[in-house]
Design a protein around this nucleic acid. Structure first.
Length: 484
RNA sequence: GGCGGCAUAGCCAAGUGGUAAGGCAGGGGUCUGCAAAACCCUUAUUCCCCAGUUCGAAUCUGGGUGCCGCCUCCA
């Protein structure tokens, strides 16, 4: 049973989908006017993992993530470069897709864009006017906050409190300072579409209401996004949508914590963003994923090279174990008696791990706890893998090889859900020919070592090292590992 | 100023009433021609402080301190 923290109720609730077996998710995507940064990466990686886990649980998941491809920032950027707004949006949308591919994020099911949904948006705005929830003023259209009694229920504040805050934008066209724009009249030179209120473009919040309702329907299951969107964006989405349909907008609101730098939020307006395209030049993209999910999604995660390096050490241990499991899968069984007691214990560890992994993920997607299960698995099997790879015959029996195969499969299932293992792990590790040749060289080297011919032994190790094959000597023999 | 959240070892980080997961770093060890890896042991009598509830609290309540987010664009 999956339990999810719902921002709306501020507690964990049992998750039951609207339609049995199916889950509809809408996640607020990016405004493409700058390179994709780690904050964007966190949201996307998170929902990629959540979707994979829900699919593992047997749900059919529809994930919708939008692009806000027209807004003030895009227009400003376009003006400063002397190009069309569309060109700016296209450039950074392309960067977003490239970044996501590098991070192993599987594509969402639908990526709607504001500029391609204008007629639907106009229809909803007109509907809101007709129902008395919105009013046109000077070519703009504003949502009348006072007409929606539930305003403030997501962010937990009342109209009075917000009025007192007094940092809201004052516009002479608004009846109330808290009213927000559904439609903005075009200024000269801005991208604009025809509408009943004259040329203009949609306000920021209306797109998400329109697109989520269009692609997921009323009362869809989960609406996600960064914690910084709770107010005003998501609050406004609820007001518009529920005023329009009269039905609950989204059933679960799931918000992730911010990526921080020096304990401060990473954001474009502060100017402390780190573009993912730069980060992955120095760090493995799968380590970035691992790092981003090694903290619970609702907590902030601080980004620094030191913390990334520390996480990297642990991650490398998991990857190394996964590689060893691939290698061992290529061994031929030896006829020898097995240590059945040890095998029994290891099989119990395996069974327990499945349960603990699922319990962790079921508890509000506790990826940090889930990762600890992988470490337990690896710590359990590692000693035996080493013995098998070093040639100890009793650890290469049919029974042991079968157990390794189970571990390999289980680790790969967990790894796939979290997406933390490079996908070409198997192909990198093994082709029969490579294995055979490396084994041959290691046999020769073993003889050289026996003869204390260290220069030959070291030369073989060094030259294999240059080819990316790392040789490691152990008490019973040598093992090897293929690195990038 | 208003609203919300968080404070756990040197660092990162799980844990919402039953006696402190996991990772990194550090120390010790197994192994060892050298190197690397792997594994074992070890590192918080204690969870920001003070009071309270309870047989029992890191976990609940009240007060304090510090940090973060939102109230303007933001994932």
């Amino acid at each position: 049973m999956l339990r999810l923290y719902n921002t709306l109720t501020r507690q964990k609730e049992e998750f039951k989908p609207r339609d049995p077996g199916k889950v509809g998710i809408y996640v607020c995507g990016v405004t493409p006017y700058a390179y994709t940064h780690l904050g964007h990466a966190r949201v996307s990686v998170l929902w990629d993992v959540f979707k994979r886990y829900l699919e593992y649980k047997g749900f059919e998941v529809t994930l919708v993530q939008n692009f806000t491809d027209v807004d003030d920032k895009i227009i400003a950027k376009a003006n400063s470069e002397g190009v069309e707004a569309k060109e700016i949006a296209e450039r950074y949308i392309a960067d977003y897709f490239e970044t996501m591919a590098a991070l192993g994020v599987r594509p969402a099911d639908k990526y709607p864009r504001v500029t391609q949904e204008i007629p639907d948006i106009i229809e909803v705005i007109q509907g809101l006017i007709d129902k008395g929830h919105a009013y046109a003023a000077g070519g703009d259209v504003y949502f009348d906050v006072s007409s929606f009694p539930g305003y403030g229920k997501l962010s937990g504040r009342t109209l009075e409190e917000m009025e007192a805050g007094a940092r809201v934008e004052v516009s002479p066209l608004k009846r109330d300072p808290l009213d927000f724009a559904l439609w903005k009249a075009a200024k000269p030179g801005e991208p604009a579409w025809d509408s009943p209120w004259g040329k203009g473009r949609p306000g920021w919040h209306i797109e998400c209401s329109v697109m989520s309702l269009k692609y997921l329907g009323e009362s869809f299951d989960i609406h996600g996004g960064g914690l910084d969107l709770v107010f005003p964006h998501h609050e406004n989405e609820i007001a518009q949508s529920e005023a329009y349909t009269g039905a609950t907008f989204a059933r679960f609101w799931v918000h992730n914590g911010m990526v921080q730098v020096d304990k401060e939020k990473m954001s474009k307006s502060i100017g402390n963003t780190t573009a993912v395209r730069e980060v992955i030049k120095k760090w493995d993209p799968f380590l970035i994923r691992f790092f981003l999910i090694s903290t619970h999604y609702r907590s902030p995660v601080n980004f620094s090279p030191e913390e990334l390096a520390a996480a990297g050490k642990g991650w490398e241990r998991l990857v190394a174990a996964a590689k060893r499991l691939e290698q061992v899968a290529g061994l031929k069984p030896e006829a020898s008696s097995a240590g059945s007691g040890e095998i029994q214990e290891l099989r119990e560890l395996l069974d327990r791990s499945r349960k603990r992994f699922e319990e962790a993920m079921d508890d509000d997607f506790n990826t940090a706890l889930a990762i600890s299960v992988l470490y337990e698995l690896v710590r359990g099997i590692n000693p035996y893998l080493n013995r098998a790879l070093q040639g100890e015959r009793e650890y290469r029996s049919q029974e042991w090889l079968a157990l390794y195969a189970e571990y390999r499969s289980q680790l790969s299932i967990f790894g796939d859900i979290l997406g933390i293992f490079p996908e070409d792990l198997a192909s990198r590790v093994d082709s029969e020919l490579v294995s055979g040749l490396v084994e041959l060289l290691l046999d020769i080297r073993a003889q050289a070592r026996k003869d204390k011919n260290w220069s030959l032994a070291d030369s073989i190790r060094d030259r294999l090292g240059q080819l990316g094959i790392e040789v490691k000597d152990g008490p019973q023999g040598s093992t090897w590992e293929l690195n990038k």
